[in-house]
Design a protein around this nucleic acid. Sequence first.
RNA 1: UUCCUCGUGGUGUAAUCGGUAGCACAGCAGAUUCUGGUUCUGCUAGUCAAGGUUCGAGUCCUUGCGAGGAAACCA
Length: 562
Amino acid sequence: MTSDPNHVDFVRRIIVGDVERGKHDGRVHTRFPPEPNGYLHIGHAKSICLNFGIAQEFGGLCNLRFDDTNPGVEDVEYVEAIQADVRWLGFTWDDRLFYASDYFEQLYRYAEQLIESGDAYVDSLDAEKIREFRGSVHGVGRDSPDRTRSVADNLDLFRRMRAGEFPDGAYVLRAKIDMAHPNINMRDPTLYRIRHEHHHRTGDAWCIYPMYDYAHGLSDSLEGITHSICTLEFEHHRPLYDWFLEKLGVHHPQQIEFAKLNLTHVLMSKRNLRRLVEDGVVDGWDDPRMPTLAAMRRRGYPPAAIRQFCEHIGVAKFNSVHEIALLEFHLRDVLNKAAPRAMAVLDPVRLILDNYPEGQGEELEAVNNPEDEAAGTRRVPFGRELFIEREDFMEDPPKKFFRLAPGREVRLRYAFFVRCTSVEKDAAGNVVAVHATYDSETRGGNAPDGRKVKATIHWVSAAHAVDAEVRLYDHLFATEDPMDPRGGPDGRGNLNPESLIVRRGCKLEPSLAEAAADVTYQFERLGYYCVDRRDSRPDALVFNRTVGLRDTWAKEKAQGGG
RNA sequence: UUCCUCGUGGUGUAAUCGGUAGCACAGCAGAUUCUGGUUCUGCUAGUCAAGGUUCGAGUCCUUGCGAGGAAACCA
């Protein structure tokens, strides 16, 4: 992508051209057409942002249309979830919520029209035979014996198909195009199949259902769509898309194909995601490690982060893989500006200020968001005994470690300077408490004598701390390509064993007890976290890590600099 | 051994009619900082290949190489 707004992608370039030439009266009307057979994921978000975004930019409209032509795999559960996800992402379709099933009657009439014009016929070949007759990429196909059936017989048979006279699979309606076509999609594709199945919207009104290629383009046409934007795998279907519209002489939208989103470490195929859920590899479609919008919402992603990401990745025809780091950059960028700050200690060790009066305490003022003055301040309780991060203390620190160590002075964020005096250890040598003295002159965090410290660490008052479970999430797959063959045929060997680390007994500053369910907080110096909307309870808080802060110290350590 | 689409730094994406290859992320270095965060500055690094046309080619032409997709009564 580019920061120059004059640079437009190839889809928008086509649309600009169409508008300038006055095609479709300069109207722009797009649609987002999910099949209600699964949850929306980040890949769909790219398409949603493209379709709804283009409509907004060109003063046009974008419909939400469910492609519900295969009742066996579709369900209302999904139509509701999909609507919630699109709305959450920040887009509205007003009263333009449609279903391909809305058009079943019209689609049927079009089919009869095609039969009458000799462009479609009823075939009795079974699925296997049809496949065989179609031939392969290496050679031409063969005509079905039924290809020459009379119009009258075709019409009669097709009507009886609708009437329910035949069992599943007995007949199909096929377009009569060209069995020798180099594009296999044009070798007499199927238009209708018999399925005695209950449809989630039309009930038992139909026992024949239209195929995607037939239903999709005509639905676009009926809705007055001008630009039908879809992914690259439909490129070979475009001649067919155009064929139906031309034969029927109806409104003809333009299909434009773009490369769908791929991300490193992320599995995007619906089928494989479903297997992760079914096999219990993850906790469900909204497990925060999943790439579904429901999961990302639960994980703490603000929708603006996803939108901003989608705006910046660009649109092209080249099949590419984006680094997950780019998504995380936009996530942190949005969160840094918006997230309220709080202090939390995930791996607590006690810090005792020996010169702080026992049984006393005070409240200190902390800034809620240094990036947003309007966020104001809050008061945080302080006392003699605190919790600090185990990682923020080292008995024998390497050169580049700036935090607490024997004899070392650091600042407690928004509080005082403290100097470490001694360490308490158990028989096994584990640090159980760190002792320090505080400088009462440094209240608020600055020394009147102007002396500096090299580090500021976060803390929580032991007397006021709220306990919580914190779930640290990381990429579900350790390899860039989740289906890397070295991980086995199902990619299971590529799973990241540390994609979820549960920390119990974490200590939070008391204000977090009332954390809002839809707000992602920054735990200072750690990362971004939000209440788990499914599992958290007032008496048993659960927080999810959305993403960590950039951590140059961890990088330093990893390079052996520590 | 068919058809379709596509090849620009590590990743992704720009470059009007052929006219200085730009931006973002990542990486590296430094400055600032009460978050080893943020912010700021700088650096590294690219037109798949070979020919051709041209004063001049990422862009046009030819050939080659490479990648992805296509043979559901799925979408």
